[in-house]
């Protein structure tokens, strides 16, 4: 399972097949942020939202900029399409809270404000989750971006 094969499956949006090689990369190189960014998307699209949220939370605490500075074109990021499809119901989700979390995660690859908007909605539905509060703190407009 090579990194390159993980990249290929991600490029052709075969998320379930991309997971294993991407996980392997992170296992060998825990600081590998590019693989983490892709893996978060893969988890959201394969029904593993809890894993996606944990990894997302870990990454934005470590390097917030690496997600917000995503260039959709040069990184072939599927998030602009995914957020659009999720918002207009082309991709259906049963649980509103989970949908907000998923959109909050995916929107950060495109817009910090929209991402914060969805995390705030999720927080109203489940105020007990400390991770969400912490994410909102990081996403606040006055939050400094790291370099």
């Amino acid at each position: 399972m090579s990194e390159m094969l993980g990249n290929y499956h991600f490029l052709v949006r075969n998320y379930s097949l991309a997971i294993k090689p991407l996980e392997k990369i992170i296992e060998g190189e825990p600081g590998e942020k590019k693989a983490k960014k892709k893996l978060i998307v893969c988890y959201t699209q394969t029904g593993q939202l809890e894993k996606a949220l944990n990894l997302f939370y870990e990454l934005i605490r470590e390097d917030f900029d690496c997600i917000i500075n995503t260039n959709p074109e040069s990184e072939d990021c599927p998030c602009p399409h995914l957020t659009k499809d999720l918002e207009c119901g082309l991709i259906e989700r049963d649980d509103e809270y989970e949908l907000d979390i998923e959109l909050g995660i995916l929107w950060l690859y495109c817009s910090k404000e929209k991402s914060a908007e969805y995390f705030c909605k999720a927080q109203k539905l489940n105020p007990a989750d400390k991770r969400i509060s912490s994410i909102i703190e990081i996403l606040k407009p006055e939050s400094k971006t790291q370099n």
């Binding site: 094969l5 490029l11 072939d76």
Partner: peptide, 25 residues
């Protein structure tokens, strides 16, 4: 140069039969 090959060739085979992916597998 610098573009993803799938975006340049835009062929069905890029998605289903990418020869490099086949070699990797």
């Amino acid at each position: 140069l610098g573009k993803f090959c799938k975006n340049v060739f835009q062929s069905d085979f890029c998605l289903a039969e990418c020869p490099i992916a086949r070699v990797l597998e």
